[in-house]
Amino acid sequence: MEPKELERVARQIRLRDVQAVFEAGAGHVGGEMSAIDIMTALYFRVLRVWPDDPKNPARDRFVLSKGHTACALYVTLAKRGFIPEDEISTFLQPNSRLNGHPNCNKVPGVETNTGPLGHGLPVAVGMAKAAKLSGADYHTYVMTGDGEMQEGSNWEAIMAGAQFGLDNLTLIIDHNRFQQGAALSDTNDIAPLRPKLEAFGWDVSEINGNEMGEVVPALEHRSDRPHCIVAHTNKGHGISFMQDKVDWHHKVPSKEQYDIAVRELSEAL
């Protein structure tokens, strides 16, 4: 799929996502909006995956380490055919398999269970190392939040990835500059990320993560080392009143706000 077409799909995913959060009365809409362009590019262009054969050993791996944005993953997986699209309406409902954090034993396409931050990258290092051991040629992608990078486990994994020479691993940091309760810069400012990753031996790209024309080549980039994409994004991207407002980590839009969001996202379609 070409970038223009991917942009259209991303807007459809945004729309379905905000609707699901509104109807469920809970969710993490800000971090979903920032990450959706990257997830769309992955599932509709970059990843070699088979929705009707989700466990195919040759599949590329994607780990959503920022598991609180599960709803965006569910909507993307549904649109790509891993789960029925009408199942999204069960998000967070009693006994639904779509709970607030993704479950790999229930939802096809999910590789590992996330939710506690700082878990996805170590697991992704293991996936990439396994491919080295077996000679498999799948590529492993993992997306973390920027606040999430405050967890020390990530830096242990970053060292391991470099030591193991994992040129089959791409870490995407969704650098939306906000965490749960405040801006990163007011909490534990880990920016700038590039020099830190470079010092740890990674190849680093910096892109606008809400600009498909930059997202696609960065995801397709290959190197002789593990690759980190520092994706500069906007928390709440695509919905004017959410953009870059700390409140929208897990706030739920009112009816009026929801209508505005739907209007803005539909206009762009």
């Binding site: 700082g118 606040g147 534990n188």
Partner: peptide, 26 residues
């Protein structure tokens, strides 16, 4: 750990800003 709101420490932070130690998600 980035839990001022969920730990209901907003009031504490307002009254004793220098005694609220938020280490981030760690």
């Amino acid at each position: 750990n980035d839990s001022v709101g969920s730990s209901k420490l907003g009031g504490f932070k307002a009254k004793f800003p220098e005694r609220l130690i938020n280490v981030g998600i760690a």
